[in-house]
Design a protein around this nucleic acid. Structure first.
Length: 289
DNA sequence: TATATCTCCTGCGGGC
DNA sequence: TGCCCGCAGGAGATAT
């Protein structure tokens, strides 16, 4: 599942393989893949055709290609299962191919997405807090790998909320790029249960969990991201290996690497949470969910 | 206004 | 073998 490290791997691949190329034509093969582009498929294809890809940028899990001469951005979200593949056009069409762009470099840029949670949309670039981002991404906070990420300010925002720490880690308007996998890993490293209330945690403990998120995502990035199946791959169709290094996520009933206690799985926000019952004791009375 | 919950979607695996 | 159901989960919409 693509979270920040996986998206960054894809961004780097796009930067290496398609920046500088121009778009000759675009085929939209599934309307849901462009549902966030309100003017529709014909408009998206028309606006992209003839544009030159001038750069590949990212904030959190949002990725965008800067286009010239229009200066708009093609915003890409991979959702649960999206892939941006750079392929020779003669390669067979993928089963879940949603969008195909033909480039003047002789390659295809393909958007493949089994579960159709992801998609493409065009957006003008606007300046937010000193950075140029698509206006549809303006509400997304800086991610922990951003050189201008302000840890102290983020700690303050988190402490100012009255909710559970895991909810805040998943709130992209507070800190971006963290999904269910890295939230569980960061909480495990910081030895904090995800149901702990933010306004009852000390500043140093919140700082510890944010720093842990930063560390775990940096490590994942060096290993090409996390992959459980063929759903997440880089632009060449290769999977990452970080899933072999996970301590909590997906480790139900396996021994905690720190204390040996069996990792437990709980339902949280309609999804699964994994934690060590000894290292990460739950608050005495969990808030109603 | 802040927080919580629902919904979208597809393929896989388990149970019957 | 085939059908049904639960599960996976990011993010916007809707409810509280």
């Amino acid at each position: 599942m693509p979270e920040l490290p996986e998206v960054e791997v894809v961004r780097r691949g796009l930067e290496r393989h398609i920046v500088g190329a121009s778009i000759d034509s675009v085929d939209i093969l599934h309307p849901r893949a462009i549902r966030r582009h309100l003017p529709g498929a014909a408009d998206l294809a028309g606006q992209l055709t003839g544009e030159r890809i001038a750069g590949a940028d990212r904030r959190g899990k949002y990725l965008w290609l800067v286009l010239e001469p229009s200066t708009v951005a093609l915003v890409v979200h991979l959702g649960m299962s999206g892939q941006m593949l750079v392929q020779p056009p003669e390669l067979p069409t993928e089963k879940h191919l949603r969008i195909r762009a033909r480039l003047d470099s002789g390659l295809d840029l393909r958007f493949v997405d089994q579960r159709t949670f992801g998609g493409w949309a065009l957006a003008p670039l606007v300046e937010v807090d000193g950075s140029l981002v698509p206006d549809s991404v303006a509400h997304i906070a800086r991610d922990p790998l951003d050189p201008r990420f302000d840890l102290a300010a983020t700690v303050k925002v988190v402490r100012g909320k009255h909710t559970e720490i895991k909810r805040v880690l998943l709130d992209q308007t507070v800190v971006s790029g963290i999904g269910n996998i890295y939230a569980d890993e960061a909480l495990w490293r910081a030895q904090i249960h995800g149901n702990r209330l933010t306004d009852r945690l000390t500043g140093p403990r919140i700082r510890a969990v944010l720093t842990a998120a930063q560390q775990v995502m940096r490590e994942a990035l060096t290993q090409g991201g996390t992959s459980f199946d063929a759903l997440y791959v880089n632009v060449n169709g290769e999977s990452g290996y970080f899933d072999r290094s996970l301590s909590a996520y997906g480790q139900e009933d396996r021994p905690c690497p720190r204390c040996g206690t069996a990792i437990r799985r709980e339902k949280f926000m309609n999804r699964s949470s994994f934690s060590c019952p000894k290292c990460q004791p739950a608050p005495r009375r969990s808030p109603a969910r």
